[in-house]
Design a protein around this nucleic acid. Structure first.
Length: 506
RNA sequence: GGCGGCAUAGCCAAGUAGCCAAGGCGGCGGUCUGCAAAACCGCUAUUCAUGGGUGCAACUCCCAUUGCCGCCUCCA
């Protein structure tokens, strides 16, 4: 195993060697001022892919993902809405889990919150003051960037440039304009905690240092997050942590590129975003995952519904293949040692998921060919190959998570209104049920009708059966008319040797 | 203004100093089908923003130009 990953620190692909067992991973979580949006999903899909691959490669992992539940923006939101900041934070945390679980993002081992670590934060700030890296000023505490010689090593910034830019907040009680707050004294009506310097709250970034050191120790294998966190957030974390411990803070800094919405970064501050929840109501988790993994995590990605639609069609092809095999041959046999080399070759190269997706489609093409040639050994091999890649990329392949295009006769039963559960075999069987020895039979037809639970499906199913009867009598004008009618209702019929499938149109 | 990154077909998107520049979507032609749909087969970048340079050889390395993006303020 030789996994190469681009380390932001060096800007190069580096060979990963773990520090010890388990591999220590810190994921920079959300500041829960608002609900998770599509950009967050990209970040957490990226970390999910890395963690899954490390585990696939045999490493044990310890994963910590924080929630920053106190900061200026959270307070601002609370004051706007005149409710307690904790209510806002919790609401957004709940929504995060709802979305992440739906997306099949593996849960971290620990989800610490900033407000649960105030004591550790205060101790860390005190340590920095004692060591001469920080100073108190009017109840605030600032980190003195001049005293930390490596400041700027992650973002490749020079101190002079930062000040020349003149966009840093100038405050008279800062010694250097680039100094950043470790502790902020509370203003009127703001939540606060007692500290040796003032009643106040942590600055932004110190909580991550405190929580990662607390849960993972002074040196981590990985620290993950969006590219927009490189400066100042991660730069500041390095300064604080390394100044305090005297040790290397993080060995691998992994950053995913931004997601742009019509050419502009999706972000909470500009209100320019689509919430994850909203998106999940329009597209299945698998389609969204495919959309992300088709691009490399370090390339900026454009967001557009038409691009997402093309992923939806791509995913439909994947499902089409799985169904086609399962209808006749289904033999899942996920032990696929022989398949490892191709996956490993792609993933070892900085998690090249687009390459793995290409492997999936290559296998599907071979698989469909085998299906046409009725080569059952090859069919099985390709079927298992596809499942192998998909499951290692975190897709959900069991039938109940499959999509929107297939319709089941008893559609509503298993997953209520979920668009994710549609099982074609039930419908095909139902049609068969209406027949005795290959011929329609009134008694059976009545029984089949009674079994239709989803009333929206009643007419399509009856019409489909009527069409089938017309076809048996070679009344093609009538059968075409019936199909045309269904077409207008939004259903496509497919005649197969197993019966007629009804599919909801794209 | 400073720092960093990116420019590959109608769209999305990998990749490499030298075999046919992955894959998906879309489109076109064909096979199958009562007709369809799905599937299959074939076609869809003599070329990788532009101009130079270094190599036997560059889309891939270097320089310049243009355009786009990110960060420099809270952000995944």
């Amino acid at each position: 195993m030789s996994l190469y990953l681009t380390n932001t620190l060096s800007g190069k692909k580096e060979l990963f060697k773990p520090l010890g067992d388990p591999v220590k991973i810190y994921i920079c979580g959300m500041t829960v001022q608002g609900p998770p949006h599509f950009g967050h999903m990209r970040a957490y899909i990226t970390s999910d892919i890395l963690i899954r691959y490390l585990q696939f490669s045999g490493y044990k992992t310890k994963v910590v993902q924080n929630f920053t539940d106190i900061d200026d923006k959270v307070i601002e939101k609370a004051q706007e809405q005149k409710i307690d900041y904790r209510v806002i934070a919790q609401k957004n945390i709940d929504e995060y889990f709802e979305v992440a679980d739906k997306m099949n993002i593996k849960r971290a081992d620990i989800y610490p919150k900033a407000t649960q670590h105030i004591q550790e934060i205060i101790e860390l700030v005190q340590k920095l003051i004692d060591k001469g890296f920080a100073y108190e000023s009017d109840g605030d505490v600032y980190f003195s960037v001049n005293n930390f010689k490596d400041y700027g090593k992650l973002s490749k910034k020079k101190l002079e440039d930062l000040i020349a830019g003149a966009r840093v907040e100038i405050r008279e009680h800062k010694k250097n304009p680039a100094d950043f707050a470790l502790w902020k004294a509370a203003k009127k009506d703001e939540p606060y905690w007692q500290s040796p310097w003032s009643n106040g709250r942590p600055g932004w970034a110190i909580e991550c240092s405190a929580m990662s050191i607390c849960h993972l120790g002074e040196t981590l294998d990985f620290h993950l997050g969006g590219e927009d966190l490189v400066f100042p957030h991660h730069e500041n974390e390095i300064a604080q942590s390394e100044a305090a411990t005297g040790k290397e803070f993080v060995r691998f800094w992994i950053h995913n590129a931004m997601l742009n919405l019509t050419g502009e970064k999706m972000s909470k501050s500009t209100k320019h975003f689509i919430t994850a929840k909203e998106l999940l109501s329009k597209y299945s988790a698998n389609v969204i995952r495919l959309y992300f993994l088709k691009s490399h995590y370090r390339s900026p990605q454009e967001f557009d519904f038409s691009i997402l639609d093309s992923s939806k069609e791509g995913w439909a092809r994947i499902e089409e293949f799985l169904y086609a095999v399962e209808e006749n041959h289904a033999k899942a046999n996920p032990k696929s040692e022989a398949l490892n080399p191709k996956l490993v070759e792609a993933m070892d190269d900085d998690l090249n998921t687009p390459k793995v997706i290409a492997l999936v489609f290559d296998a599907i093409k071979d698989g469909f060919n085998a299906l046409q040639n009725k080569n059952s050994e090859e069919i099985n091999n390709k079927y298992n190959e596809v499942l192998f890649y998909l499951s290692n990329l975190g897709f959900r392949t069991d039938i109940k998570y499959r999509t929107e295009k297939r319709i089941s006769m008893s559609g509503g039963t298993t997953a209520s209104s979920s668009i994710e559960y549609r099982d074609v075999t039930k419908f095909v069987n139902a049609q068969e049920l209406a027949k005795t020895k290959g011929h329609y039979n009134i008694a059976n037809l009545i029984e089949a009708s009674i079994n239709i639970i989803d009333m929206n499906m009643l007419i399509p199913i009856i019409r489909s059966i009527a069409r089938d009867l017309a076809r048996e009598k070679k009344e093609f004008e009538i059968s075409d008319l019936l199909r045309k009618g269904l077409e207008e209702m939004g259903f496509t019929l497919e005649d197969t040797d197993k019966g007629t499938r009804i599919k909801r149109k794209k």
